[in-house]
Structure formats: C-alpha cells, structure tokens
Design a binder for these strands. Structure first.
Lengths: 138, 138
DNA sequence: GCTTGTGTCTGTACCAACTACAGAGCGTAA
DNA sequence: TTACGCTCTGTAGTTGGTACAGACACAAGC
C-alpha cells in the first residue's frame, strides 16, 4: 500500500513538494529547455510523468553540486548529444577547479577580515579600527 | 614633482584608472547612493575630489572583502548615521560567519563531487558513473 | 574656422538563476 | 452554488555590476 503510486502523474506543486524545490523553478527549467514540455490536462494543467521526475531530480542534484545551468545542459546532452564519460569528467574537473578557486578566494577574505578586525574594540564609540583601515590612504 | 597632484579633480575614467575599477561601476555607485553626486563642469562632466576618491576606495575595499552593498551602506553610515565600533564588529562577525558557511558549503560540494567522480573512467563511451549516480533513484 | 578622434553624457538592456506577484481561469468539497 | 484553493500566463524584481547606442563635449591638427 504505497501512499502515492510512483507512476501516477503529478501536478506541478506535487512534483515540487516531492523533490523539495520551488514551484516556479520547474516552470523556469521548462522555459529554458532543461525540462521538456510536459503533458497537460484538457484545461491546460501540467502533468508530470515518472520520467519527468527522474530528469528534474538529476537537474536539482547537479545544481546542488554547483554545476551551472549550462553545465547541466551539457550533462543532459541537450547541446551536442549525450556526452562521453571523458567529456563529463573534463566538465566535472573544470568545475572542481572552479570550486577550489572560490574556496581559496573566500579563505583569503576571511584571513584579511581577521587581520583588519584585530584592532576592533567593540566599543560604543564611532572610532573603529576596521573602518579606519578601509579609509586609509594606502 | 608628483606625476599627478593628489588634490586635482579627476574625470571619471581617471578615477576608475587610479582605483582599478570599471568606469561604469562609479556611475552605478552614484546611482544607488553609495557615492554622492559629484561636482560637474559647466557642460556636465563629472569631477571627482580627493574626498570622493577616498570614499570610493573605501567602498571597493569593503566589497573586495565580500561585504554586500547594503553592508557598505551601513559601514558608511548612510542608513542610520555613523555606526559604532560595536555595530561594525557585529556586522563584520556576521559577514565572517557567512563566508565560513560558504566555504563549508563549497567544501562539501567538492567532497561529494569527488565521491561521485570516483567511478569515472574517462572513456570515450557515453556510460558515465557521474551521470549514472545523478540519475539514480535514491 | 573646421574636422577628426576620443571622452563623456544619458538611458536602457543584459548577465545568472531563480523568485514573486497580478489577474484570470479551473477543480472540488460543502 | 459558492467559496476556497490551485494552476495558468506574462512580467517584474533580486544582486552587483557591465555594455551599448546615440547625442554631445573637448582638444589637436590643419
């Protein structure tokens, strides 16, 4: 006795609820071509198949790993047909490099912020070492 | 014999060149109220004083530390008057927490990406462990 | 004085990746 | 039947800029 059949067609809010994404995100992915035009009821309401659900889950997972929408398009083979494992690996490696660069940038921010905050007294006066340092000539 | 006098009024491109920002960024900061309306020549060309330069440098430094435009607005005392050192500290601490959360998120992405890429062979075939895993039911 | 080239002016459009909202229509339970 | 809630569409807003078009300004050279 499944609570909901895994093959039943879902409405947009149901699909969003199942996969934990925003309602409008689904329409957005449809608009930009990541999701195909879904089936419709006679009156125009969208109906999502199990295949649609699988595809959306793929997209959401890839996005949560930080792949861009364009990356996802490539992974799905929308641009140039289904990518080879070599192509996927290259994409993922490049993406990983990007993530690491962002981490390095953020770490440097954190470090510099720490240095610059060192003189902060936390006093209730307007004199603050942080703003002073940002205002310095050099 | 200074190459350029530090007090001479600068044109927009000159100021941008000195501080290493984009020409249009200056107009943008003026538009959103981070920079005051500058002096103008009779024909309407902007002229930036030394004070303008100091203020823009402050803004660019704060932005490079990752403070949002709204944070910068607060640091400059545009919203509620000049902030106390306690307020600046609180803002900076909150921002630092944010940076660290972003670092943690990116590290998790990197780790998960590593796990998921582990099975990638890099072959010229369409069978790819990465996409397979993203397509998996659970 | 005139032309030519470069710089500046304004407003507006564009980028990513959604998210939110207005106004109309549809579905269903009481 | 009427009310409520869900869905439909198109469009605007978000963040922090960046780019461009078309009109004017300014300085140098002739």
């Amino acid at each position: 006795m499944a609570i909901t059949s895994p093959r039943a067609a879902l409405k947009r809010a149901e699909l969003a609820g199942r996969l934990g994404c925003n309602l409008e995100t689904i329409r957005y992915y449809e608009k930009i071509g990541l999701l195909p035009d879904p089936a419709r009821t006679a009156s125009g309401h969208r109906l999502y198949s199990n295949g649609d659900q699988v595809r959306l889950r793929f997209i959401l997972r890839a996005r949560s790993l930080g792949f861009s929408v364009e990356d996802v398009r490539s992974l799905l083979g929308i641009n140039d047909g289904r990518p080879s494992c070599a192509e996927v690996s290259a994409l993922a490696e490049a993406h990983r490099g990007d993530i690491r660069k962002r981490i390095a940038d953020l770490r440097q921010m954190d470090r510099r912020l720490g240095e610059i905050m060192a003189g902060c007294t936390g006093a209730e006066t307007p004199d603050c070492a942080l703003t002073d340092k940002l205002f310095e000539d050099r």
